[in-house]
Amino acid sequence: MKEFMMIFIGANYEELGLSPEQLQERMGKWFKWGDKMQEQGVLRGGAALHSSGKRITGADRVVSDGTFVESKELVGGYYTVAANSYEEVAVIAEDYPDYDLGGTVEIREIMQFDR
C-alpha cells in the first residue's frame, strides 16, 4: 500500500476571526474526520502548524523570521494516510472541514525508498 500526504492550505483560523463557538464547531468536525480515518485504519500521522516560523536560505544561510506567504497559501497542517491511489485519497479528503472557508487540500504521494 502507498502512503499519501494531505497538505492543508489556507483557511487560517486566526485570520478569519472565528468565534469560540465556531472554533468549537470546526474542531468537532476535524475530530470526527480523524475518528473516521482511525476507524478505517488509514490514518498514519499528522500535525497542525503554527503560522509563523523561520527560514534559512541559500549558501549564506540567511535567517529570516515571519509568516512567509499570504494567508490563503499558508500550510496549516497535514495528515498522512495509507491508500492505493490518488482517487482513494480524494475520497478521504471529501471530509476536510474547511472547504467552506476557502481551504485547499493538496494530495502528494510519499516516496517509498528501497532499503
Partner: peptide, 12 residues
C-alpha cells in the same frame, strides 16, 4: 481557544 481548537483536532 484557537490553540485548543488546533491541538484538540486529533485528540481530546
Amino acid at each position: 481557544f484557537l490553540r485548543a481548537a488546533l491541538k484538540w483536532r486529533n485528540e481530546l
